[in-house]
Design a protein around this nucleic acid. Structure first.
Lengths: 256, 256
DNA sequence: AAATACTGGTGTAAATAATGAACCGACAGG
DNA sequence: CCTGTCGGTTCATTATTTACACCAGTATTT
């Protein structure tokens, strides 16, 4: 694999439960030699992508990322536009709302507003949403550029729960369904007890560039709640797409 | 140079005035061959660090950065802590306040709150502050780990204005002065007409990890305003350092 | 309208840069 | 005092990156 790709893959080893990682562990987790990992880390540290705690010698994501994020937001406001919309969406539905944008081959979470209820869905910050196992992923694939679809159908599909679609035929059917409906549902296909409903966000080219979703405890989803979520989502995605300078294509219609 | 470093350097070519860049331009600006640049871009796109506009074929910073930034903030809240402090600082002083953290060898701006006055200092989002030419840089160097100091003194010092210290002797003197005072001033050393006052932010190890600064139009800086800024800065840096889990060393005292 | 000069992107042989095993000193626990 | 692990370094081997030429498409200019 390309060296740069391998180096950047290291960044994906950090998550909420493991914000700091030592050299040896990083090497073990990535399957790359210690010496190589160290060189990569030093290279990335030169750009502030990672930094090293001087006391523990552990590595963590660096402040340079914050700088780049601000720069990206300056030219292309996304979180800024989406966060208030998420807040309203969570308020209207009473459930956890989240937004994601295409980052590489998958969707990266860029904003979450949690439900106010005590029994609510929690979404880890910076979570990567698998395209085949989440409502957001299905909604995105249904309206993304065609190569995204063929790519995901060609991939091996990991089973996250018993309900995850793992063969390309059923996945294709789910995506077709999402395209016909204008939105996607995922009944415990990623996490048990979690039901997701998602609609695509569109870029300036009229293709999907991300998704907006509402996640509820599966047991709580009544037809009434579902209808309320769909209505709120439809308005929110229109607003978010417009706010980001996107264009909603004519063929995207919400089927009741 | 290391390939990963070179690839990540490409990210620094994007700024507010140039949020999207084409392949050829990117190659020309970086001095790297087109084919190489393209491979690097594709590698970085796989992690969402950059993305390509399908219509214009231009490249821009990717949404993956937003995801990483959220992840970093989850483990090490910085902007979240600092932004309200900056807002108060700007309010109290009536001038533009900004914060920066070490990112690689230099300081990267991670937050700005502008003055409310019509004649105010503007700070470009995601700006990289040269250590030798800005108040933030001096304040940081004065209290950073010793190797930072020796490193900056060994570097060639670019002249941004006529007042920029360009030889290591005067730079060392300025830094010593900042260490003695507990804060640093920069009188039009980076931008003409801009006067900066900065204090260091400290990490958990008791060494500087960034800076908080107030920038004023040079003509407006009266002794009274300067005193007000210093008082507000002192309180703000204490608060910010504490909020980020840092430790203020005993030898940092503000000299009136 | 023809020609020129860009653009983004691809394939190749040559050369450089990445690689990984062995090694080092430091530290922690038994 | 041994043992295991840590972060980090070294260096010969090799596989990757690199740069050049080339291609096709598109503005711009003549």
């Amino acid at each position: 694999m390309r060296t740069v790709q391998k180096a950047l893959k290291l960044l994906d080893l950090f998550d909420e439960t493991r914000p700091e990682i030592g050299l040896s562990v990083l090497a073990r987790l990535s399957g790359i030699d210690k010496a190589t990992v160290l060189r990569m880390l030093n290279d990335m540290a030169a750009s502030g992508l990672v930094e090293q705690d001087q006391a523990s010698r552990n590595w963590r994501l660096g402040a340079g990322i914050l700088r780049l994020a601000r720069l990206r937001e300056a030219g292309f406001p996304a979180t800024e536009v989406i966060n208030p919309i998420l807040a309203q969406l969570a308020g209207e539905t009473g459930e956890t709302a989240h937004a994601s944008l295409r980052a590489g081959r998958d969707l990266g979470t860029i904003g979450v507003v949690e439900s106010a209820r005590s029994n609510r869905v929690y979404i880890e910050p910076g979570l990567v949403l698998p395209l085949h196992a989440t409502a957001s992923g299905l909604a995105y694939c249904a309206f993304a550029r065609p190569e995204v679809l063929s790519d995901v159908l060609a991939r091996p599909l990991s089973a996250h729960t018993g309900a995850t679609p793992t063969d390309s035929a059923t996945l294709a059917a789910r995506i077709d369904e999402a395209r016909a409906q204008g939105y996607a549902c995922a009944d415990q296909t990623y996490e048990a007890e979690v039901f997701g409903i998602a609609m695509p966000l569109f870029g300036a080219d009229g293709f999907a560039c991300g998704a907006l979703a509402v996640a509820t405890p599966a047991a709580r989803l009544t037809p009434e709640l579902r209808a309320r979520i769909l209505a709120a989502l439809a308005r929110a995605t229109r607003e978010a797409t417009r706010g980001m300078g996107g264009r909603i294509p004519e063929h995207h219609r919400i089927a009741a």
